[in-house]
């Protein structure tokens, strides 16, 4: 896969895979192309090559159709609809669904994130960063995705809240088999969560392997774990 912003080619041809039920993390420094990778999957930028999801080609489709195919994207900076209430954000998350269980799902994520229940009528813009991240994740889950894309979920959050949120990700994967592709700079928490990991540098995948193996890789330790 390649991707470009206008004339600037950001991804130089990368290849990676996520299996059903797996948590895969992509590590990389600022500007490596992590966010671009996720945006490319959702076709928010022009891409070359091929992006296959459940045997179907995503390249060239509209973003709204990719959501319908079962991919939910929690963007960097959370992307909550700040003029809408918490509850309306969750309802908007279920926009692509036509079944009658939307209300039940809202209750379900409220019990997973009780803070959101307390703030259900409050505007999303008035939430704290951690609460917004919870809302963004819950909203993405409202579409009942098969694959969850998470763009730097730890960004700008206090360490304790990062731990909380990653614990929830772990539960989602363990209890419901949720498949996740996470891009992170916070390699420590990300490698704890992940089954496998890739390292992205300047638009190219330079390393890949099981999370435990990468954790002990000297280059990764130096660059991303800091010891």
């Amino acid at each position: 896969m390649t991707a470009r912003y206008g004339a600037i080619q950001v991804l130089q041809g990368i290849e990676f895979a996520v299996e059903r039920g797996e948590v895969v993390v992509v590590l990389g420094a600022n500007g490596a192309g992590k966010t671009t990778t996720l945006r490319a999957i959702c076709q928010m930028i022009s891409t070359g090559g091929s992006i296959m999801f459940e045997g179907k080609e995503l390249s060239g489709q509209a973003t709204s159709e990719i959501v319908r195919a079962g991919i939910a994207h929690v963007p960097q900076g959370r992307g909550t609809l700040n003029d809408l209430s918490v509850e309306d954000n969750l309802l908007a998350g279920a926009y692509v669904r036509k079944d009658k269980e939307v209300g039940a799902d809202i209750e379900r994520w409220f019990s997973m994130f009780p803070r959101l229940r307390e703030r259900r009528t409050q505007g999303a813009g008035s939430l704290s960063g951690g609460e917004q991240q919870m809302l963004a994740v819950a909203r993405a889950l409202m579409s009942r995705p098969k694959l969850l894309l998470l763009d730097e979920p730890s960004l700008g959050l206090a360490p304790l809240i990062v731990q909380d949120i990653f614990r929830v990700f772990g539960e989602l994967n363990a209890d419901q088999g949720m498949t996740m592709l996470v891009v992170e700079q916070n390699a420590n928490v990300a490698l704890d969560l992940a089954d496998r990991a890739y390292v992205l540098e300047a638009g190219e995948m330079v390393l890949s392997g099981k999370a435990d193996e990468l954790r002990h890789d000297d280059a990764v330790r130096k660059a991303y774990l800091g010891y």
């Binding site: 959702c42 928010m44 973003t63 709204s64 159709e65 959501v67 319908r68 939910a72 994207h73 963007p75 992307g79 909550t80 609809l81 700040n82 003029d83 809408l84 309306d88 309802l91 908007a92 998350g93 926009y95 692509v96 909203r139 579409s143």
Partner: peptide
Amino acid sequence: LAFRAVSSSLESSQLLGI
């Protein structure tokens, strides 16, 4: 709801399949 979502944020609305 979709209308209010779009008027709040174009990009986020796209990511919700709107």
